[in-house]
Simulated assay, not measured.
Amino acid sequence: MSREKGASPYLLLSITMVLWGSAFSSSKSVVEHVPHSVAALLRFGGAALVLLIAVRIFGGGRPAPRARRRAASAGVLGVFAYNGFFFWGLSLAPSLDAGVLIPVMSPVLTSLFLLLTGRGRASAGRLAGLALGLAGAAVFFLGAGGGTQQYPSRLAGDALFLLSAVCWAAFTLAGPRVLSGIDTLSATAYATCTGAVLLGVLAAPDLPDVDWSGLPAGVWMNVVYLAVGAAAVANLLYYRGVGAVGPASASMMMFTVPVVNTVCGTVFLGESFTALQAVGALILSAGAGLAALQDRPSLHRAPVAPKTSRTL
């Protein structure tokens, strides 16, 4: 089977994880100045505009109606629901918590979904990884339970991050099906535009309360970065990567996100974990890694590259 020329899917996924890892603290900076619903709209409304322009310039034809509906429905889950919970959580908890719970719980939940749907084998390693991961998550939540003076509702925020992880795991598993019969650019555009419209409906009541002229220049710089880099480009690369290597291997790449996010959150925002959260994060990471490793395809089996656009 011929392989499509271009960058390695693992390189594309690595770039995606760096963009996403830095996006947690960048999103938190925006949420500190506007309502969380407006911050989500700015990120994905901007991304939708970028992708529509890209489709206009580089689009490779009009996909079939069924393929468009699949991509749009993926946007409800992977853009609207995920980011609705994520940005709401950022208004209650530090970005460090999101950078652990979402990317590290995603492989655990992906493995659990594969097991429950009969697409994964109930091996001892997978079950042990799931148990360890869930135990680590419980310890992490226990560490956030008391809250802090700065984040009295930290536990509620972490619960919202967990819901985001559920949405993202389901979105990842749906990725190969979404890409069936549609190019990567079009799939990303349909999903992002659908999610952006729904986020716009959610943000509509909060828009009049924003002092647009008083927003610092740094907020707008973060919005541009989030819309172009962390949303449009990153989602496009992720669709292509997950279509090439599969959801299990793609979920393994999420382990690089907490590292990038921890550096950004501590250096730029001065955030920190509680001691118990740090212990929980380590246990969770170990369990997630063990569970996700059970889902990786054979190294000797070449992944099937999806139909992709001409933009990459």
Results as ranks from 00 to 15, higher is better:
4 E>C: 00
5 K>N: 10
10 Y>W: 12
11 L>K: 02
13 L>R: 00
20 W>Y: 12
24 F>E: 00
28 K>F: 10
32 E>K: 11
35 P>D: 07
37 S>P: 01
49 L>Y: 03
51 L>C: 11
56 R>Y: 12
57 I>C: 11
64 A>T: 10
71 A>V: 03
72 A>E: 12
75 G>D: 10
77 L>I: 14
79 V>A: 09
82 Y>K: 05
86 F>P: 00
87 F>H: 06
92 L>H: 10
94 P>C: 05
98 A>Y: 04
98 A>V: 11
102 I>G: 00
106 S>C: 11
111 S>C: 05
117 T>I: 08
123 S>M: 08
127 L>C: 09
128 A>C: 14
130 L>R: 01
130 L>A: 14
131 A>T: 15
132 L>A: 14
132 L>W: 02
136 G>Y: 02
138 A>M: 04
143 G>I: 05
148 T>C: 11
148 T>A: 06
158 D>C: 14
161 F>G: 01
162 L>Q: 02
165 A>I: 02
165 A>H: 00
166 V>T: 13
169 A>H: 03
169 A>C: 08
169 A>F: 04
170 A>R: 00
171 F>R: 00
176 P>R: 09
178 V>M: 12
191 A>N: 07
191 A>H: 06
193 C>K: 00
194 T>V: 12
203 A>T: 07
208 P>A: 07
208 P>I: 08
211 D>M: 07
216 P>D: 06
220 W>L: 13
220 W>K: 03
233 V>F: 13
235 N>E: 09
237 L>E: 01
243 G>Y: 07
251 S>W: 06
254 M>G: 01
256 T>E: 11
256 T>C: 08
257 V>M: 13
261 N>Y: 05
261 N>W: 04
265 G>P: 06
265 G>Q: 05
269 L>Y: 08
271 E>Y: 09
273 F>P: 01
279 V>T: 10
282 L>E: 04
282 L>I: 10
288 A>G: 13
290 L>V: 06
306 P>M: 08
